[in-house]
């Protein structure tokens, strides 16, 4: 039994006058991993960034249609973007830790929410780092600068930082594309573990990755959602020829 977490209805997105997303309607299930695949510039990252309204930061972006999270229209006038982003966390393509200590990176979210109690913060930081599978590597040097970590560790730290805010949904924009194979497999394992408690939406260029870790896969092409189904179905028996061509490597 799957519960729907996010759904969009006839969503269009424009950069100025350029149409970047055309008529996207999709239902994303709760506590599953949903992967967005497609060639560069197909709109998958743009769509991902619409789900926590990070596109608001870009001038000239306009959105038509509706995006619902837990049946609440997140583009409604009364929606507080700050609260939305606490519920819908995001991990970026390039790891972007703050130039602060490992501890302070993870404590950042709880702190801006007004949490001051040292003991509670310690607990949150420890739990978040454990959930992001990086605790054992950093527990003895929480006070060290996060900039001293390797790329893979930095990315897991960024995941921990996102988890510390206790989101329900975690959006990931090609989180492993800049990492070596070992770090990538660690991130992939982590994503599969995380779906126990979180709804994960991941953009990836790596088809094997989507096949390995996701439950649902959406194929985007030229701003359109071409096909969306169970990952197994998409990778073994897609309905559309374009999807088949893409996953078999005939283009893209």
């Amino acid at each position: 039994m799957t519960v729907e977490k996010i759904h969009t209805e006839n969503m269009f997105l424009r950069y100025g006058t350029k149409l970047a997303l055309k008529d996207i309607s999709i239902q994303i299930p709760e506590k599953k991993v949903t992967a967005f695949i497609g060639p560069s510039g197909c709109g998958k990252s743009t769509f991902l960034r619409s789900l926590n309204r990070m596109n608001d930061l870009i001038d000239g972006v306009t959105i038509e249609g509706n995006i619902f999270i837990d049946d609440i229209n997140i583009y409604d006038k009364n929606i507080d973007v700050v609260t939305l982003r606490k519920k819908v966390g995001m991990v970026f393509q390039k790891s972007n830790p703050f130039a602060k200590s490992i501890y302070e990176n993870v404590a950042y979210g709880p702190r801006i929410n007004g949490l001051k109690d040292k003991k509670q913060l310690d607990e949150i930081v420890e739990t978040a780092l454990k959930n992001a599978a990086i605790w054992d590597e950093v527990k003895d040097r929480l006070g060290d600068s996060a900039m001293g970590l390797s790329g893979g560790q930095q990315q897991r730290l960024c995941i921990a930082r996102t988890l510390a805010v206790n989101p329900e949904i975690v959006l990931m924009d090609e989180p492993a594309s800049a990492l070596d194979p070992l770090s990538t497999s660690k991130i992939e394992e982590l994503i599969v573990q995380l779906k126990e408690n979180y709804t994960i939406v991941i953009v990836t260029h790596n088809m094997q990755q989507a096949a390995r870790i996701s439950d649902m896969t959406a194929f985007f092409y030229l701003g359109e959602l071409i096909e969306y189904d169970k990952t197994k179905k998409i990778f073994t028996n897609p309905d559309k020829k374009q999807t088949e061509d893409y996953i078999t490597g005939r283009f893209g």
Binding site: N52, M54, L57, V82, T83, M90, F92, K94, F98, G109
Partner: peptide, 18 residues
């Protein structure tokens, strides 16, 4: 200060001023 860091902070639910 890289734009990425501003984005990271905002994505964690920080306000612009924070």
């Amino acid at each position: 200060v890289p734009k990425d860091l501003r984005a990271a902070s905002l994505a964690l639910g920080a306000t612009k001023w924070q």
